[in-house]
Amino acid sequence: MLPYTGSVQRWATSDPATDEVLRIWYVAVTRALRLAAIALLEEGIDALAHLLAARRVPVRIV
């Protein structure tokens, strides 16, 4: 869950080595074998979809 405005920007630019919350998000997402569901505020959807698509991660928004 990315619970606040700015979560996607934090995910895109912060360093998991120094940001404990980001490290937890990273571990959760990278352990997924088939599917990772991410809940976030509506205003962050496009930014996250763009970030993931740029890294060739398939995205499905429901």
Rank of each mutant, 00 (worst) to 15 (best):
H50I: 08
I24H: 12
R23H: 11
L52S: 08
I38Y: 05
A28E: 10
A32C: 08
L41D: 10
T30I: 08
H50S: 14
Y26W: 12
L41E: 09
W11Y: 14
L41K: 14
E20D: 07
V27P: 03
E20A: 14
D19V: 04
P16L: 01
I45F: 05
A54E: 01
L40W: 04
A54F: 04
A37G: 10
L2M: 08
I61C: 08
L33T: 08
A12I: 02
L2P: 07
I24K: 14
L48H: 04
V8D: 02
A37W: 10
R34T: 02
L33D: 15
A49G: 10
Y26I: 05
W11H: 08
A53K: 12
R56L: 10
T13P: 00
T18Q: 07
Q9T: 14
L33W: 12
V29E: 13
A17I: 00
L2K: 04
D46R: 08
H50F: 11
P58T: 05
P3T: 06
I61Y: 00
P16M: 00
L41Y: 08
Q9R: 13
L52E: 02
A54G: 15
D15V: 06
A28V: 10
P3D: 02
V62M: 07
I45L: 12
R55D: 06
V62Y: 13
L2D: 07
R31A: 01
V29S: 13
Y4A: 10
Y26A: 15
A37F: 09
T13R: 11
V62A: 13
I45W: 00
A47E: 03
A36I: 01
R55T: 06
R55V: 02
Y26M: 13
Q9Y: 10
E42R: 13
H50K: 15
A39I: 15
R10Y: 06
W11S: 00
V27D: 10
R55Q: 13
E43P: 00
A47P: 01
I24P: 00
